[in-house]
Design a protein around this nucleic acid. Structure first.
Lengths: 211, 211
DNA sequence: TCAGGTTTTAAACGAGTGTTTCAATCCATC
DNA sequence: GATGGATTGAAACACTCGTTTAAAACCTGA
């Protein structure tokens, strides 16, 4: 089907360019040129540039969120079975591991994570709301599960610590193998495995810090 | 001097609007309109929109960086006098406390911190380089000082943990009293004091986590 | 008060933006 | 092979953008 080819060529290039230069800084003309597609195709298939953004997000976020939710539910179910609190480590793993594995699964997915990682601090209201609509419920569920794992933490403090977790995660997602910060310290790419392991240690220590 | 009034009216509005909507999404027309200044005044006083950005950054970053560097040097000097390693807590305080105090010092400074906090993940190359030029050296010094406080940490791991610190700090800076994340959990503004205290606890636990 | 530099003003320029239009083309169905 | 809807194509539309221009207004020092 030629239509589907056009559609996914647009989606692929949009994913890459939105991640690389941001939503606002990517023009439909360079986008369609790179995708080897007519300029009007975007409005034909996605109604508007904003519609294209939502499609880019939905294509990746739907399966990713599903996998994360599954793993969180699984941790909760096992804990309930054993009549214990869910473990903080297992919950964080359930949220973080699928995310980072997903980013490494394909080049496009990596670009996608950069796009998402950016939106915690995104100034553009269109982009913010488009992402939060599709990711908000999952985060709420994750927060509730964490609350069960750390019942001694007051809710406002738990919320702060969750914010610290998410902002650091956002940085990892958006830096994808090349750290924009501290770029002068050598060309060695920190490998994914090490970064993930160190992230878990850092975040678990912070989450479980005494009051 | 009417010129200085014009200049600082432009700077104030630029700071506010760049923080609120981002550099690219702020047009000189709405900016000059709000500042009650002629459109051409920006190019007259700052040469270009990018020149305005650099002026906005320099005005705040120069004194702030100076204060942070002073406090870091002070911690190092005291440690050297006592022939001890510098304390991680003191170093993090030296970097973090002036930053967050500065943000609370005035409304404009708060806007400014939002602008800076965003740039860790900023896609726009102009903005990124403009900020990193003015903040890079300080971060390098801070990294080196942290290395003295945590000599058992391999350098690449220290660098990762520093990244986690900075990304969380960026989030605090850019959220400024109103958390964009988890906005549904009530209208209570997390107060500055509590956020700072919890941030210190979280980050110190992570930095000092065992290998 | 007058000359001379500084600052402000209104208008225009040229390039770039997302979107729309309406033929031309493709392609499955009868 | 003709028909009809789906898709593509080239061009234009209606803006907005940062920047430049040149005349007007302002202000200072002689």
């Amino acid at each position: 089907m030629s239509s589907k080819d056009t559609k996914s060529r647009i989606l692929d290039q949009a994913e890459r360019l939105f991640a690389e230069h941001g939503f606002r800084n990517t023009s439909l003309r360079t986008l369609t040129e790179r995708a080897k597609v007519n300029l009007a195709a975007v409005n034909y298939h996605f109604n508007s540039k904003e519609g294209l953004l939502q499609a880019v997000l939905a294509r990746r976020l739907q399966p990713l969120n599903q996998r994360r939710q599954q793993r969180i539910d699984q941790v909760l179910a096992e804990a309930h079975l054993k009549q214990e609190k869910p473990s903080v480590r297992d919950l964080v793993s359930a949220f973080v591991i699928p995310t980072l594995e997903f980013g490494a699964s394909s080049r496009g997915a990596g670009h996608f994570l950069r796009l998402i990682g950016r939106t915690w601090n995104e100034p553009d209201e269109k982009v913010r709301s488009a992402v939060f609509e599709q990711i908000g419920p999952l985060i709420s569920n994750f927060a509730a599960a964490l609350g069960m794992a750390l019942p001694q933490l007051p809710e406002n403090i738990l919320r702060l610590r969750l914010m610290f977790l998410l902002s650091s995660l956002g940085y990892i997602m958006s830096s994808g193998n090349s750290s924009p910060l501290l770029q002068d310290t050598g060309t060695e790419h920190p490998d994914q495995q090490l970064t993930t392991r160190e992230f878990m240690k850092f975040i678990l220590a912070g989450l479980e810090a005494p009051l």
